[in-house]
Design a protein around this nucleic acid. Structure first.
Lengths: 336, 336
DNA sequence: CTGAAAGCGCTAACAT
DNA sequence: ATGTTAGCGCTTTCAG
């Protein structure tokens, strides 16, 4: 049996059965108020009888809207599924879109030359998109943005004034984390930062610096850990080999923190007794390492929800804020 | 800026610029051979010039195919992202679809009353679907199946003769696992099974029984563990309290095996010295427990690829096999 | 409140 | 090899 053979009733047939015109059926389907109770009733009955579902292509062709939005993830599947950040974000997006008339399609870009996704966006298949990625600089993302309204997760690398994005307050989060360490009496606080090419990396480092500056404390050490466990370990090694022995380290991601804690353990540095450690993300990792990690929680689920809300607003013709910044929250555990 | 304002060129404009008819442009776009080199050239140039992308809705309306397939996951997002099985399956599907002309959209059914997804399938938005779920009995899945060709992951609960599915050889896998234990000299082999409501549970139990029977060994204990860690623990407790002290346990999932091993540990039963344990899945868990788990590996990525291939075949009008069964592989680690 | 009519952008016979 | 001609199923003015 082929797909073609499984045809549904058309609006024409519904109209005939209901004894009205196509227009009236269309009005009922689209919830127009200007329909008499009797017409409404008979149309509804006909729709039920025929099990009618409007053809999406025809509808979209006539109205030039699809009632579909896409989540676009320019990452390979491995990374997508391995990173809890994506899970939380997508769950949030999904939760919000599910209770709207829109349908959500998820697009993972792995192995995709880019053209297929861009073509999809430009072919009028979706009304809008949410782009979730660690590297928003992909050229094809801007090709999509020129075709449909786009909302980004996190501040885009080269954010333009009319971009829309939802970010967590990385700078404030980092500052709070460092201030917590200071409040604990720590004075020689180092940091392991994310890459300068990512806004989260930049902002978290800025937060660290702000906190240190306003407390009048010197920056003991600043090392780049590349947001990976290995990078975090290497950075920690460099810090230990340096002269400024720290009594605390603010580490810009849990993954890097795990790497760093391995190095501390190997060097027989006690956490938190000798060196306190604060991470960032509050991923599952935070509770699976030992000692458990004190870390800044990112509201990723809420971020997803918010992005969806912004996009839906955009599609309704509202004027949502271009930037929405969500607060973070310190989760205190054993490491600091 | 609204979506409507971002219009693309139409086939009409391309035709005019190229100095040919719409039909010729359509032929070029669709790769028909019956086009003269000159026409082909000028059409291509015009397409480039105008940055033309065919409108998907119009195309789909005229041809009644969408060049889109969906992966449908009737699970909540939490479960979807938490279970590595889905990650592997979806990656496999994605890998195969990516190198086809089809576009893949992922549909997670959480919070969905079902109607939206069914409507989507019935509205002619997709040419076919792959259903990946732990519980294939959802009624709305059959509603989808009546609208477009569907391929299932795993044998459906009440498989009908013209269903298409790709499964792993659960029975053979279980038998091999038990035979491995027998080969190790184990004689008093118990099993913790999955629920009788799931084909994987049924088939793995059948495999255990077949192996025991043909070795002439008695079934020491058969307990249901419900495919959860807690269920596995409870089942193990029941086994330990029973009279037939086992020297090995075949456990139908890694998750249950983890629960069971916790109980063994608490009861000071040494693994594998006192009791050997073999799991099923080869999930990440298998290497994160101690001792590491000997387990049957499921080829989930390949299963995804195969399902995609079957679906594409179906859409091409081929007649792929209704059932495809993939072999499993024993991964020997420390627990047996 | 309702119907008639004109497309939306494309494909697919059918001619030529 | 190419153009002409009907639609695909729906929305949307525009009359009435």
């Amino acid at each position: 049996m082929t797909a073609q053979s499984r045809s549904t009733a058309t609006i024409e047939e519904v109209a005939r059965l209901a004894g009205v015109s196509r227009s009236t059926v269309s009005r009922v389907v689209n919830g127009s108020t200007a329909v008499s109770p009797e017409a409404l009733e008979s149309v509804r009955a006909a729709i039920d009888d025929l099990n009618y579902v409007p053809n999406r292509a025809a509808r979209s062709l006539a109205s030039s809207r699809t009632l579909a939005v896409a989540v676009i993830i320019p990452e390979d599947t491995h990374r997508f599924f391995g990173d809890p950040f994506f899970a939380a974000i997508v769950s949030g997006i999904n939760a919000t879109i599910a209770s709207s008339p829109y349908v959500l399609t998820l697009f993972i870009a792995s192995n995709d030359p880019g053209d297929k996704m861009v073509g999809y966006a430009r072919s009028g298949s979706i009304d809008g998109a949410i782009v979730v990625s660690h590297h928003t600089s992909d050229t094809f993302v801007s090709a999509i943005a020129s075709a449909v309204p786009v909302v980004y997760a996190g501040r885009p690398d080269h954010a333009r004034p009319n971009d829309y994005y939802v970010d967590v307050d990385n700078a404030a989060g980092a500052r709070d984390a460092v201030e917590y360490l200071i409040g604990q009496g720590r004075r020689r606080i180092a940091t392991i930062a994310g890459p300068a090419s990512m806004s989260a990396g930049v902002d978290r480092l800025a937060g660290y610096r702000a906190a240190m500056r306003s407390a009048g404390l010197p920056e003991v050490a600043v090392e780049d850990g590349d947001f990976t466990a290995e990078g975090g370990a290497a950075a920690m090694r460099r810090i230990l080999e340096g002269k400024g022995k720290p009594d605390a380290v603010f580490i810009a991601s849990d993954l890097m923190a795990r790497g760093a804690m391995g190095v501390l353990q190997a060097a027989r540095v006690r956490v938190p007794d000798d060196v306190a450690v604060v991470g960032f993300d509050d991923s599952q990792l935070a509770t699976s390492v030992s000692p458990t990690l004190t870390t800044m929680r990112q509201p990723s689920f809420a971020q997803g929800q918010t992005m969806a809300r912004v996009l839906l607003g955009l599609l309704e013709g509202d004027e949502p804020p271009h930037a929405t910044i969500l607060p973070t929250e310190l989760i205190v555990r054993e490491s600091a």
